[in-house]
Design a binder for these strands. Structure first.
Lengths: 141, 141
DNA sequence: ATATATAGTTTTATCAAACTAACTATTATA
DNA sequence: TATAATAGTTAGTTTGATAAAACTATATAT
């Protein structure tokens, strides 16, 4: 069979898989948060000190959208902002201990899933998969 | 490095990739439709004659949700319903020529992306990727 | 000193997507 | 035949995500 067609199907299957991977988060202890919220939390975890404007540029969403979302997380005690000394217009965002705990749970859920994937593949396949994903992840689709 | 951690990153990268793959559809000629609509259209294309109830069960969404979404597609001239002769409560859903054309465009967009992916990998990697995805797609995460 | 730009907030509004509940029409069953 | 169940619709609502526009506060440049 044509590799092109097979690959289209693979992408379909991956879409389903990724969707499962993500929505798993909405079952356990994290079910009170939306995927969007968990995504913002992850972003702040990965880029501690990021600002509302930077998030806005990264995600190509309006500042107002981000501002509202982040302030909601602040009200929930998940995120704090620290005003910059050098430029008082800036606020550095970071996770509170509650936020860090959410990230911990988040990572744990994913880790459990990853284990299932690893168990279903042999080590060579895992290696190969990681390598291939690295190659296609940098593509400018 | 720990394979588990690497795989977590791979899944993150895949999430981004799949998201790009999907939202590409919202750029060109298909931009007037939502991803959800394109998804329903794809579902009806793949399962011609499917009913509202069947979609509802498959997607685990309420019948009313599906009914509204499908009727919207009918109003847009993308889908038609044909009442069953044997059980008049049933309506078989299928795409109109407009709907089929949308699917054609949809597939074309994906095909172009797939080409980029294929070009970035060697044939052995493509084969390997397809095989691995098949294995993990059937997992019950 | 004044004008301009930037960071972030607030208000108001819109939209998609989902839900519940009550409904009609049809079919199956006790 | 009367009652249950099923397919689909309709009305009304809720939630989450987004945007535009007007705003405050601060910083930069002329």
């Amino acid at each position: 069979m044509n590799q092109e067609l097979e690959l289209v199907e693979s992408m379909d299957k991956l879409s389903v898989l990724v969707h499962k991977f993500q929505t798993e988060l909405l079952n356990g202890e994290l079910k009170e948060y939306t995927l969007r919220q968990l995504y913002y939390i992850e972003l702040i975890d990965k880029h501690e000190g990021i600002s509302v404007s930077e998030i806005s540029k990264t995600l190509e969403l309006k500042k107002s959208t981000i501002s509202i979302a982040i302030n909601q997380l602040i009200e929930l005690g998940i995120v704090t902002k620290i005003q910059s000394n050098t430029d008082k217009r800036f606020y550095f965002l970071k996770l509170t201990s509650k936020g860090k705990n959410i990230m911990k749970l988040h990572k744990q859920v994913h880790k459990n899933t990853i284990k299932k994937i690893i168990n279903s593949l042999n080590p060579k396949e895992v290696e190969s998969f990681i390598k291939i994903v690295d190659k296609i992840a940098v593509l400018d689709l």
